[in-house]
Computed example of a mutant assay.
Amino acid sequence: MENNYSVERSLRVLVLISLFATAYFARDLILPVLLGFLMALTLSPLSRALFRIGVPHTAAAILLVSGTGLVILLIAAGSAGTIAVWSDELPRMGSEIRGKLSTMSEAVEEVRSATDEVEKLSVDPEAAPEVVVKQPGLLDSAFDTMTRIGATLAVTFILALFLLSSGDLFYRKLVQAFPTLEGKKRALQTVYSIEKQVSRYLLTITIINIALGVCLWLYLTALGMPNAYVWGVAAALLNFLPYLGGFIGTLLVGAFSIVTFDTLGYALLAPIGYQVLTTLEGQFITPWLIGRRLAMNTVAVFLTVVFWGWLWGIPGALVAVPFLVVFKVICENFEPLKTVAIFLSGDDTEEVRSNKAEPLASE
C-alpha cells in the first residue's frame, strides 16, 4: 500500500514537472490562448450587458473586440514615435543623468574601474582566442519581435471573438455532460460563480489601471513633463505587475524627469507623485473595489509573479496575477482544492470556507 502511494506521488511530481516544461517550450502557443481567455473573461460582463439590451452575442463580440483592438492600435501608434526618439537619445540621457548625479556616478565609476582591473588580472594571456558568435542584426531582431507580437495578438483577438460570440454554448455543453439534474445545477452554479468572480476582478483591475494611467498623465502634464501620455500608458501596463511594476515605473519616470527638468528637487516631484498614486491605488482603492472576496496572499502573489516572469519573461509576469486569480477561484469551487484556496486568500479566509457555490467535485 505504501509503495503504491509512493509511486502515485512520484507520478504526480513528474506530471507537474512535465506541465511546466511544456509551458516553457510551448510559450508561443500557450500565451496567446491564455490571453484570449483572459480577454474574453474581461469583456464578458460588457457582452452580457449588450445582450440584455438586445444586441446579439456575435455583434457584441465584434464590437467589443474590434473596439479594444482599435484602442490598442491608437495607443501603440501614438507612442511608437516618442519611444523611437527616446531610444535614439538614450546615450545623451545617460550622460545628463550621470552629470546631475555626479556624486553617485563617481562612486559607481570607481567600483566599475576596480572590477575591470580585477578582470584584466584574471585573464590568461596564453588562453585560446575567444570565439565570437555573430548576432543577428538589429533589423532582423526587430522584425522577428514584431512578427511574434503580431501573431500573438492575432490569435488572442480571434479566440476572444469566438468565445464571446458563442454566448452560452459552453454552458449548454457542460449541462449536457452531466447525467443527473442535480449534477447539471451544481455544474452551472460553479461555472457561473467562477466566471462572475474572475470577470469582475479582471474588468475592475483593468479600469483601475486605466484610471491610474490617466491620473499620472494629468499629474505629469501639470509638472511640464513632455509626452506625459506615454508615461500614463506605461503606468497602466506596469500596474498589472504587482509590487515590481510600481517600483520600475517610479525609477523610469525619475530618470526621465532628471533629464527633463533643470533642478534635481523639482525633478523628484515626478517619481514621488508616481509612487504616491500607486500607493493609494494599491493600499486603498483596489482593496476597496474588489473587496475581501478576491483578496490575495501577498507572498503567493509575489512568488507567482517571480515564477512566471522567470518562465515566460515580461508577458508571463503581466499575466501571472490574473492567472492566479483564476486558479484561486477554481480552487474555491472544488472541494479537494479548498485548502489551496485558503492559502492563496488574504487575511479573511472565512469567505472562502463559506463559498455559496456547491463544489463540483462533490458530485
Rank of each mutant, 00 (worst) to 15 (best):
M39L: 15
V306G: 01
R48D: 14
G224M: 07
A270P: 03
A21L: 14
E119N: 12
N297M: 06
D348I: 07
K100P: 01
E117S: 12
L202Q: 08
A23S: 03
T206D: 05
T339H: 12
L43A: 06
D140P: 02
A128Y: 03
Y5T: 02
L241C: 05
E8T: 08
F256S: 12
A187D: 04
L188G: 05
S199M: 03
L289Q: 10
P125E: 05
Y201C: 04
V299G: 07
A270H: 03
S79P: 02
L294R: 14
V13L: 14
G167A: 05
T286R: 11
V305D: 02
L64A: 00
G99P: 02
L46I: 02
L35Q: 08
C215P: 01
N333F: 03
S141H: 06
L251M: 15
L174H: 05
N4Y: 10
L70W: 00
V230E: 00
T156H: 02
C331R: 14
R48S: 11
L38M: 10
F261A: 06
S87H: 09
I208C: 15
M146F: 14
Q283P: 09
Q275L: 14
R186K: 10
L121H: 02
A270K: 06
L19G: 05
V321Y: 13
G150H: 04
P315Y: 02
M225Q: 08
P136W: 00
L41S: 02
R200V: 00
I30G: 03
R148I: 15
R12Y: 07
G183D: 06
C331T: 07
V111Q: 15
W310K: 07
L220N: 06
C215F: 13
G232W: 08
V131R: 10
S95K: 15
T206P: 10
Y274R: 07
L360R: 12
L41D: 00
A255D: 14
R112M: 11
G245F: 01
R292V: 07
I158N: 08
T221R: 12
T103A: 14
L324M: 13
L161G: 07
C215W: 06
A49G: 09
V214I: 15
N4L: 15
I285G: 08
K134R: 11
V326A: 10
R112H: 14
F284C: 05
F327W: 13
A61S: 06
W86M: 07
A77W: 00
D262G: 07
N209P: 13
L188M: 11
N209G: 10
G282V: 01
N239H: 11
T190C: 13
